[in-house]
C-alpha cells in the first residue's frame, strides 16, 4: 500500500474517460494539477454500472463500492474523485444506500466476501471533480491560474441531472459548501472566474435523455434539441459540460439532432475542464478541443484561441 501525499487525491477515471472522452480525463488532470492537486488513478478499477445495473440488487452497489475499497486499500484514501456524473451518481448512491440500510450493506459485503475481497465499511465519500475543485480550491484559485481569460466568449453552463440530483445522494456529507440541487452554481462561478460571460437559459439541469440515448433516440433528441436551442437562442457561443454521458447525447449526436430539428440546435459543446485548460494557458491541442464532434474549435479560433 502506498499512501497518497498531501497534494494528491485518489481518482476514478471510468470507462468513457479512458477512451472516447479522453479529452475530459486529460484536461481534468491538467487543470487539477495546475491548481495544486495531483489526481492519482486507482489501479484495477471496474465499471460503476453506468445506471444499467440497478435492477441487479446489491450488485449495483457492489460495483462502485469495489472501487472505493481499492482506493482505500491500494492508495489509503477514503475518498475518491471522479469526473463523470453518472459514475458520481452510482458511487454516491451506493454509499448512501448501504449507509442507511444495514441489510444492503450485508448484501454487498456478501459479494465482497465471496470475491475474496475485504469487506466494505461506509466511511468515505465520492467527489465530483467540479464540486471537489470548488470545495478544495475554490473559484479564487481558478482566477489566480487564469492566464488567458475567456473574455468575450458566451458560455452556457450545463450541469445535467446526476451531478446535483438527487441531493439525498449527491451532496450528503459534502463540506464545506453544497451546490444547490435545483440551481447549481459552481460551474457558473468557475466560468466567471475564467473571464467568460455566463449565459442563463433555463435548461441548466434539464435532462439530455442520455441514459436512453441508444435505445430511445426519439426522447433523447427531443430533450437535447430543447436544451441546445434554448442556449443558442439565449446567445450562447458554446455549451459547457461536466459529464461524458451528456456529451454523448449533446455532442456526439448533435449532427443527427440538427438534421432532425434544424440549425437552431447547432451549438458547439465543450467540457468545462477543457475551457479551464485553455484559460490556464494550455494550447487547444493540449486541451484536445478537436475531439469534440460539434466543432467548438471554430468559435474558439474566432475568439483568439
Amino acid at each position: 500500500m502506498e499512501n497518497l501525499k498531501e497534494n494528491q487525491a485518489a481518482y476514478y477515471p471510468g470507462c468513457a474517460l479512458l477512451t472516447i472522452d479522453r479529452a475530459y480525463n486529460n484536461s481534468s488532470k491538467m487543470v487539477a494539477k495546475k491548481m495544486g492537486i495531483e489526481l492519482v488513478e486507482i489501479p484495477d478499477y471496474n465499471c460503476c454500472g453506468i445506471g444499467e445495473m440497478k435492477s441487479k440488487g446489491c450488485v449495483s452497489l457492489y460495483l462502485p463500492l469495489r472501487n472505493m475499497e481499492i482506493a482505500k486499500t491500494k492508495l489509503g484514501s477514503k475518498n475518491l474523485v471522479m469526473a463523470c456524473s453518472v459514475c458520481y451518481h452510482e458511487f454516491t448512491r451506493s454509499i448512501q444506500r448501504v449507509r442507511e440500510d444495514k441489510s444492503m450493506l450485508d448484501g454487498v459485503n456478501a459479494i465482497f466476501k465471496d470475491a475474496g475481497e475485504e469487506e466494505y465499511s461506509p466511511d468515505g465519500e465520492a467527489r465530483h471533480i467540479l464540486e471537489f475543485l470548488y470545495n478544495e480550491k475554490g473559484p479564487g484559485e481558478v482566477r489566480k491560474n487564469t492566464v488567458k481569460p475567456l473574455n468575450g466568449i458566451k458560455i452556457a453552463p450545463y450541469y445535467g441531472c446526476l451531478y446535483s440530483r438527487p441531493s439525498m445522494y449527491t451532496f450528503m456529507g459534502k463540506k464545506p459548501v453544497m451546490d444547490d440541487p435545483e440551481y447549481p452554481h459552481f460551474m457558473h462561478e468557475f466560468l466567471e472566474s475564467l473571464g467568460a460571460e455566463v449565459i442563463h437559459y433555463g435548461n441548466e439541469v434539464q435532462c439530455c435523455g442520455g441514459r436512453n440515448v441508444v435505445q430511445d433516440e426519439e426522447t433523447s433528441f427531443k430533450l437535447c434539441s430543447q436544451t441546445l436551442s434554448k442556449a443558442k437562442n439565449a446567445g450562447a457561443d458554446m455549451l459547457a459540460l461536466i459529464c461524458p454521458k451528456c456529451a454523448g447525447a449533446l455532442d456526439v449526436n448533435q449532427p443527427k439532432i440538427v438534421e432532425k430539428f434544424g440549425k437552431d440546435s447547432e451549438l458547439p459543446v465543450v467540457y468545462l475542464t477543457q475551457l479551464m485548460a485553455l484559460a490556464f494557458g494550455f494550447s487547444s491541442k493540449e486541451a484536445e478541443i478537436s475531439d469534440m464532434i460539434s466543432n467548438p474549435l471554430k468559435i474558439l479560433k474566432e475568439k483568439g484561441f
Binding site: 470507462c15 479512458l18 477512451t19 484495477d44 478499477y45 471496474n46 441487479k56 440488487g57 446489491c58 450488485v59 457492489y62 469495489r66 448484501g107 456478501a110 459479494i111 465482497f112 466476501k113 465471496d114 470475491a115 475474496g116 475481497e117
Partner: peptide
C-alpha cells in the same frame, strides 16, 4: 486497450452467486 481488471473473475463469480 481497455482490458479487464485483474482478478475480475473472482468478482464475477461472487456476483453470479449472489444473483
Amino acid at each position: 486497450r481497455l482490458g479487464t481488471p485483474p482478478k475480475w473473475h473472482n468478482s464475477k463469480k461472487a456476483i453470479d452467486k449472489y444473483l
